[in-house]
């Protein structure tokens, strides 16, 4: 599933502006054995098809604050960069 993120209409979560929402398309695995942080993100509710709203991002490339499934999460930027979303209009 690593390849899917190259599709044109998806962008990393970090590309969304504050207040914008998108649906999760895929999560790129990164290094290490699968299941690590990818599984963790899923467990926190960021499964494909879920709507994510970026509420704000901390300054100097800090983490993002997102809304997902009715709760508020803080997400490290490195991780957010690997989440690919389709922007909602």
């Amino acid at each position: 599933m690593e390849k899917r993120n190259t599709e044109k209409n998806t962008l990393p979560l970090t590309a969304l502006k504050q207040g914008e929402a998108g649906t999760v398309a895929s999560i790129s695995g990164g290094h290490g054995k699968g299941g690590g942080f990818e599984k963790r993100l899923m467990d926190m509710g960021l499964t494909p098809g879920t709507t994510v709203t970026v509420v704000k991002s901390a300054p100097f490339h800090g983490p993002l604050e997102i809304l997902v499934r009715g709760s508020r999460l803080a997400l490290g930027r490195g991780m957010a960069e690997r989440i690919f979303v389709e922007k909602e209009k």
Binding site: H31, R40, E65, S71, R72, L73, A74, G78
Partner: peptide, 12 residues
């Protein structure tokens, strides 16, 4: 080992 990144719920 691998670093883990922040994933944390911020409850009200």
């Amino acid at each position: 080992g691998e670093p883990t990144a922040l994933i944390m719920e911020m409850h009200d």
